[in-house]
Design a protein around this nucleic acid. Sequence first.
DNA 1: CTATAACCTACTAATCCGATAGGTTAATAG
DNA 2: CTATTAACCTATCGGATTAGTAGGTTATAG
Lengths: 169, 169
Amino acid sequence: MVISAETGLFDFSVENSIMNAKKSIFKYIRNMLSKKTKYGIKALAFIAKKGNKKPVQTSEISKSENISQKFLESILLELRKSGFLGSKKGKGGGYYLIKEPEDIRMTSVIRVLEGPIAMVPCVSLNYYEKCDDCPSEEACSVHSLMIQVRDSTLKVLGDNTLADISAKK
Amino acid sequence: MVISAETGLFDFSVENSIMNAKKSIFKYIRNMLSKKTKYGIKALAFIAKKGNKKPVQTSEISKSENISQKFLESILLELRKSGFLGSKKGKGGGYYLIKEPEDIRMTSVIRVLEGPIAMVPCVSLNYYEKCDDCPSEEACSVHSLMIQVRDSTLKVLGDNTLADISAKK
DNA sequence: CTATAACCTACTAATCCGATAGGTTAATAG
DNA sequence: CTATTAACCTATCGGATTAGTAGGTTATAG
């Protein structure tokens, strides 16, 4: 907020021009992978790295991975409800893996946290939705392209398990 | 809005529960490819299909592809400024391709309209940005996974040209 | 000179993301 | 039995984008 020296009132025009400048200078970069999903994967990897079956506290993951604890809580809760994690309340409690890391594919993690893997709903396997505009999917120039992208992404995410990504370092 | 028969007042609790139900039933599906990009690709394909060098009007594309004309105008303008299209004003004017469809890769179109192709800025080639949270990209479990996804997507989008996607049908 | 179609500027509603706040419940330690 | 711990739950919020809409101005063809 800029205050005019002359009038003592808020100078909205200046404020506005600064905001517009910001807009144009710092081009927003769209995240296709939300922080939620990113944090979720990191948390799973963290738990997997520990290896043993003792529960890991949210606070520990939060500190180690620089994630807001409250936000992380909601993510881990969702992962538990989706069957990836088990939990234990009270002292010494926390979250632990239910399945082996080798059996957790990145596709399933991302589908739960993020939603569709496809870039467009009309080529999504699990979250299909027809486009409003396209009368025919076969005639759509974007459709087949996006199917190719989906399939190549699906291949990568399906090949990678939690064991693979938590093995790093 | 629901009106209580007893009090004659708005029953916000009911209203609210309906809205919550809606929220949970109709899960929002995130588009990773914006409509802007989708429309832009469709428009390019439309122009490419025409084949000849006569300018194509925004209104024609808009009607044929079911795209809001004003929105499309802004997209085609951007594509012109980015060097994909040429334009001609006045009667008989419109937009035309500057390069051959074979020479227009989908990667470049998407980068201009959408921005980064990578799912996360920290693995983007053209829009790189460091993550706030990660102290080390090598240690990040998400990083290498997203590099794999990026590369496979880049392969598909780099292999497909405007000629390829407009050849359909 | 007039119709056309590109070009430009500003604004808006709806929506989501990422997070915060403030609590309740269940399990363990002492 | 009591205090502590950590998961669990509900509500709310600011900031930012998307997908337009509105209302013009400029240049070109006939």
